[in-house]
Amino acid sequence: MTDSAFRIAPDGLKTSPKSAFVKVLIIEDNPGDARLMGEMLAEVKGTEFDLEWLDRLSTGLERLAGGGIDVALLDLSLPDSQGLDTFVKAHEQAPGVPIIVLTGLDDEELAVKAVRQGAQDYLVKGQVDNNLLVRAVRYAIERKRTEQERLEREKLQGILEIAGAVCHELNQPLQAIFGYYDLLMMDMSKDNPLCGDIKEIKVQVDRMAGITKKLMRITRYETRDYIEGRKIVDIDKASGIVK
């Protein structure tokens, strides 16, 4: 591959001329290393990689926030960030993006720590060849995908369990209120001035019953923003009432 056919630059411009399927972000301050990995990926047959290269963590984080990255290759030693901290920040910025940590020969222990904290894999610079790099990239993407799916399933499972418990606990007192309301209204003459107030209580209890009915229909994991960045389960969406 010649310079004209494949050039990447630290301004983050996409320079691969081919339409790409796998979007790879390289955050690496050494142009030689970045370029070598770019060329290795470009030579792969069967899968096309769309590469973006940035040489600072700050610009890398910005790019990750922009979305659309399938996998990130992250050098832990950058001019504006060193060590495990580099990984932690990137992972926090984009917890859904699989990250492969790049490290020097003397840093393997650090890389293992990053894996422990959620990096998909690590590669030791200077010991990477085409096959190893491609395998690591593909494996990282697949592993992250199954990890995300498992997470979603577990979250849904947790929600279903809570929904079940909440429904049961709330439906009991609601049943008592429903029943006693009906009994009360049977004995009350229509012109009793209290009728209106009691009916209003029923209107509000009906609302509560509506909520438990929705909870019982939850089949998906959906959240909506609540306050201060907190997310709560979106009952309408999760129960399929709102698409």
Binding site: E169, N171, Q172, Q175, F178, D182, V205, M216
Partner: peptide, 27 residues
């Protein structure tokens, strides 16, 4: 108090004629 589809199937199999989900109106 809480029914999933699985439970409903189990209810039929156990021999219930019908089921009501709480809260249900007396009528």
């Amino acid at each position: 108090g809480y029914t999933s589809l699985f439970e409903l199937a189990e209810c039929r199999e156990a021999g219930f004629d019908d089921y009501f989900t709480k809260p249900v109106e007396l009528k």
